[in-house]
Design a protein around this nucleic acid. Sequence first.
RNA 1: CGGGAUGUAGCUCAGCCUGGCUAGAGCGCUACGUUCGGGACGUAGAGGUCGCAGGUUCGAAUCCUGUCAUCCCGACCA
Length: 572
Amino acid sequence: MRWTQTFIPTLKEVPAEAEIPGHQLMLRSGMIRQLMAGAYTFMPLGYRSVRKVSQIVREEMDRAGAIELFMPALQPIELFERTGRKDAFGNVLFNFESRRGDRNLHFALGPTHEEVITDLISREIKTFRQLPLTLYQIQTKFRNEERPRFGVLRTSEFLMKDAYSFGTSLEQLNEAYDAMYNAYCRIFERCGLEYIPVEAESGPIGGDASHEFMAPADNGEDFVVRCSSCGYAANQERADTGRSATVPPAQDGAADPEKVDTPNAGSIEDVSAMLKADPATFIKTLIYMADGKAVAVLIRGDHEANEGKIRRALDAADVALADEATIERVTGAPVGFAGPVGVDCDILVDHDIGAVSSAITGANEKDAHLTGVIPGTHFQFEQTHDLRNADAGDKCPRCDDSLEIVHGIEVGHVFKLGTKYSESLDATYLDSDEKKNPIIMGCYGIGVTRVVASIVETCHDEGGIVWPMAVAPYTVELIPLNVKDEEVMTVSNRVYDELTAAGIDVLMDDRDQRPGFKFKDADLIGLPIRVVIGGRGLKEGIAEVRRRSESDAQKVPLVDTIRVVQEIIAAG
RNA sequence: CGGGAUGUAGCUCAGCCUGGCUAGAGCGCUACGUUCGGGACGUAGAGGUCGCAGGUUCGAAUCCUGUCAUCCCGACCA
């Protein structure tokens, strides 16, 4: 492709709306343009990378035995009502009505395709002989993001590969899951994207039923907890801590807690400022409703409660913070003054509480707190649990080292669904005993446009993008330094034709611009290999070949140019 | 959805607080000339309903009210 014949509007200045490097670079390199918040046009350059990533995804899905199909983005709302996800998605689901003749039809724009594919399978699959089967598509998804962010990283419309496996047994599910997991590793490796597979929150199936693939990036919205010695990695919601139970014995003759006035100070922050005390000496008492029953959850003041862990500790199906009325009934005080001493419900205690020797807690009385509260003495408990988010420095659950926290971008997710959708949409098969069973499903997603954004976000230097070879919009940027010089252009055109004939994606910057200008743009758009043809080099019969990732160019005899480029490509 | 900020030329921004003649700069763009190996220079130009609507005022980019849009922080995220 010749630059003058395509459409690559680069920007010298950083657009005001872009905050993070990846967004700035995609805008500046002319890869994307914004239409509105959360919706972007992929320009010719950006779209080439999208297609390269899509192609890698497609090849690896095919290799893993998945079969491609293409489903409608436009879907009847009724399917989401049947699975209960109309309410679960809430405002995130685009749904609207439209007239057709004298009828009013109610549609959704697909946020993902479990419903559509399960409905399809329910109609077409009759017998165990037709299974297992894994289907996938690469399609635009729609989610009404409350807050689109970071350019193409978080949008209301995005390109996603979604795959669904259907089987008759847990073994078939595990086989499909493993195949997808391995395919994902290959995909991210081929894309040149650093990734960490992490254990993720997986709902009722538990265990290893869900993994997220995270690209480590400072601007990532997710937190990954990992151990650098044993490789344990999990997202922050899921991560276990290697802490153990500590139940202190009751102390005889310990002084009673002292009540202090804390007018209008209901938060840990307020009270710690008022009493000049470290939040780590507080016990935070959160009143939760677990399957309709109130529970007081005790967490150290400087920690974050984790609802998933609380739910599992209580073996409850549903856990949520209690409403004000419940809190007042249980504690006898307004919100903000709950404490474990004298609270009228069960208590659930985090591991770290046992180690607090003398704590500040709510007094279960308006505008008052207790100091000198001794766990095990002033309130009793028989067991402690892991109830909070993991933190940097916590002990690893698998080895003796400690955990660290890194930011990450979620680029893929594999999930053992089980029979949630097959049951609600009646997707069943007949087994060899002629018995009807729900099909066992898995779902597997990769955000294609998000992968592109993650690569740009993580692969760049001061000058611009530094594309990994496999996903670069073009592999080579060929720069004739002076397009008015006939000899330079003759040679450049020849090299261009030869590179093209060798099957190499080449972009020739044939614009009538000064060399410095073109070099800057070349660094910006960041193609992996730069070939420069200039009058000076021509006198010596050489071209300059430079990898974008290296600072020095090598002088190559003109006749060897193609070979050298091919060698660089082969070396990756 | 809660909090904060911004909206002036294609882009980046000044001007607004303290209202006043024809609304500015740099970059980009057009023409001509000089230049030509890391974002050149000169000359001459084009380009603006100051987001939109209403109000206050003799007079509004500037003050007030509303509204829309975008961005940031937080909540949410099958």
